[in-house]
Design a protein around this nucleic acid. Structure first.
Lengths: 344, 344
DNA sequence: CTGTTAGCGCCTTCAG
DNA sequence: CTGAAGGCGCTAACAG
């Protein structure tokens, strides 16, 4: 039978209950062995009886030993493959470079949520640095972060804005992808990607589409509306998009999907239709996820894991008062595998 | 030119520099708007000049508002697919059920590291609850955690030990998997899995192998050593294992891999050899990862995401002083897709 | 509007 | 071996 009240139990309560001073309680708590076994047990009993839990905050303040944490903030696990590979880079590098920091994971599911999290982070200062993945930053919140003096870095795209960001150029990636397909002789090239949105998330799909458009223009190929399929970032949705494409009067001979997962959806649709990849239709993904490698998917490498590595390296540099330049990632790169081939 | 010294700057320093009292500094810090704009700016200037960063710890102590965190501890991103799906369940459910907690990610790379992390967690009490994924718990550390009164729950296998654990029965899973292949007429069934180890990680591979063995025995099928290929948990390693199997005098007609990733490695090896899945050889994975779905892999569902959901639900229950029973997961379940078929 | 003061819960001297 | 007292950095309530 323990008390049901949740009111804070402090060492004072424990000391009183055990009939000792708080100093003694503190000593048994920290295993300072100069405590007579008997009193020690008395204290221990009092602790369990009262269900006492020491306050880590008070302890830290007294000890002058702040727990150090680095925050990672991203969307709530939609599109979590690329996030995971980035996180892996972050985690492993953090492990290698410093054992002082713990990783705190923030996820946001809406604009409000995002803003609330940012505000919260700034106010509580629970985190010494922040990595922002796949998310935009409004001027207001940019200022907020700046004022807080909490170092931060974005990961996804090239640094274009006024804040440090690590990633590759999505427009270039889309451009390269499309040029690659063009070079294989394809002209009816479809684009399967996320719906363009103007919200708190980085508009990756639009950027890659821009590159796609530009490459087509340069090649003098008409961009036909019906070859552009936008939808939710999801395997099944992409599969449906591909089905629509296949049902066109003149279906595409190649599909450029803005992510590997979506590309796999397209591949599935094509196979279900009884067609072959790449013999009948080529499919090119984007990301170069591990699963792309595992499935033989042709894709565009955007150096996901490395982006995490560089991101955390940069942040640790700032925190260490070296004034590092914002690192650069290699350009996106075509990785041809077994889902693309030249048009006969 | 800012100071290079890192010695703590406090509000007292700021107050002195700005020629005001600490109360005023606190007020501008917290936007208590009863500050004359002029003094406000003075304070702000002092803050930037001194590069003052308020102590979140002192603030929390004063406000009596502990930041609440839940820890997730696991191996450092080997085998991160299943971990990620579990984490997704944890994260989403936490988001749904409570906005009070943040997720803290611990990863361990060795036994020492693991023990150090646990000790650290217990001592600093930085976390109010702990989810332990794919990791074992020695009696010593079990006691450590118990003494700390930090609620914890394991995720991977069925509760067999003396501590709460959520997961499915791996022996049963291996058994079902093998029985399924037997029912398709296969007898030369290979097992591709992780090397058996006795360390801090949960010995999942051995458990599934146990089930495999049992099913073969029951069916009166001889377990031949050369059909058992153990190695690192890795796509490429599994691929090599499969290559070895294919080079046997009498290769297997079916492969049971202990994970989807390894199963995909086997599939790749078979295809490279010019053989077809499942026409020539059946491959059965384990996990039911999203990528299994994406690739049409036959597999054993172990309810990964749901394990995360139940894990965090349980923990939140304990933290909320309801005394929840340890949740149970549905049994492992065969998910036949396109990589298994009956032997002709 | 602003300076001063009393804690927040714990750890660490310093006496006894 | 143990109790008492000061202080960690900050907030909030209280006088001015």
């Amino acid at each position: 039978m323990s008390k049901l009240t949740a009111s804070k139990v402090t060492i004072y309560d424990v000391a009183k209950k055990a009939g000792v001073g708080i100093g003694t309680v503190s000593r048994v708590l920290n295993n300072h062995l100069q405590v007579r076994p008997k009193t020690r047990t008395r204290v221990l009993e009092a602790i369990t009886a009262l269900d006492f839990k020491p306050s880590s905050v008070a302890r830290q303040l007294s000890l002058q030993s702040q727990i150090r944490q680095i925050g990672v903030i991203t969307q709530t696990f939609v599109n979590y493959y690329s996030f995971t590979e980035r996180l892996r880079g972050i985690q492993q590098t953090l492990d290698k470079l410093s054992s002082d920091y713990e990783l705190l994971l923030y996820t946001v599911s809406s604009l409000e949520h995002y803003q609330q999290q940012l505000t919260n982070i700034v106010q509580t200062r629970s985190v010494e640095g922040l990595i922002i993945i796949d998310l935009e930053l409004s001027n207001k919140h940019l200022e907020l972060l700046r004022d807080s003096h909490i170092p931060f870095v974005g990961i996804n795209h090239l640094q274009t804005q006024d804040w440090p960001c690590i990633g590759t150029n999505n427009v270039e990636g889309g451009y390269l992808a499309t040029k690659y397909l063009l070079s294989l002789g394809h002209e009816r090239i479809a684009y399967v990607g996320d719906t363009f949105v103007e919200d708190y998330t980085h508009n990756t799909s639009r950027e890659r589409f821009e590159g796609y458009k530009r490459a087509l223009e340069e090649a003098g190929v008409n961009l036909s509306e019906d070859l552009v399929q936008l939808g939710k970032h999801d395997y099944d949705v992409a599969k449906q998009s591909a089905e629509k494409l296949l049902n066109l009067k003149t279906p595409p001979t190649a599909i450029f999907a803005m992510s590997d997962v979506q590309a796999l959806g397209c591949v599935a649709a094509i196979k279900e239709k009884g067609l072959k990849v790449p013999d009948d239709i080529s499919v090119l993904g984007y990301d170069d996820l591990d699963i792309g490698y595992h499935t033989g998917l042709s894709t565009v490498r955007q150096h996901l894991e490395e982006s995490g590595v560089k991101g955390i390296e940069y942040l640790l540099g700032v925190l260490g008062n070296k004034k590092p330049a914002v690192p650069k990632l290699p350009s996106p790169k075509i990785i041809p595998r077994q889902t693309t081939r030249a048009l006969n």
